[in-house]
Amino acid sequence: MIKLEKEVINVKRLIELIVNGMSYEIAVDTHRTLLEVLRDNLGFTGTKNGCDQGECGSCTVLIDGRAVHSCLTLAMDAQGKNIETIEGLSEGEKLHPIQQSFVDHGAIQCGFCTPGMIMSSKGLLDKNPSPTEDEIKRGISGNLCRCTGYVKIVDAIKAVEGR
């Protein structure tokens, strides 16, 4: 007889997650974070895990338009809410204006913080299309970057077309 091994012995719940406008019905353990489910179950690996404790912003996604740490969000809690990840911004080859501006301004070095940084920028610009430099800096102050010194990132956000 084949001995079956289960990854985790726990009660799974069937939930619906709406990610980038698509509905996904999946069974998850109640203790899973949204970050884990996005990356491991749904394959949205654009969202990064930098610290796993809500201290670096690499895992930032938008939930109902607000930037949050997906590593601190229970997947259960994200049910039925509108979740936006970095994968949802571009359309085919056409980058979202924020993404294009990051590319054009040299705001990307290693690119690890970039998805979270862009999601925070989107959360900011959706609410406040013409932020001041200080508002931009405050808007991305929860997103750590160790490569760029943030200068080109701030430049990129300032220059987003149609902001």
Partner: peptide, 23 residues
């Protein structure tokens, strides 16, 4: 010239695969 890397759009869209993104 200040040219972006050809694959910067991959980094900007989350398509760039880092080691932890391989399953």
């Amino acid at each position: 010239k200040s040219l972006p890397r050809k694959d910067d759009p991959l980094r900007a869209t989350g398509k760039a695969k880092f080691t932890a993104d391989f399953f």
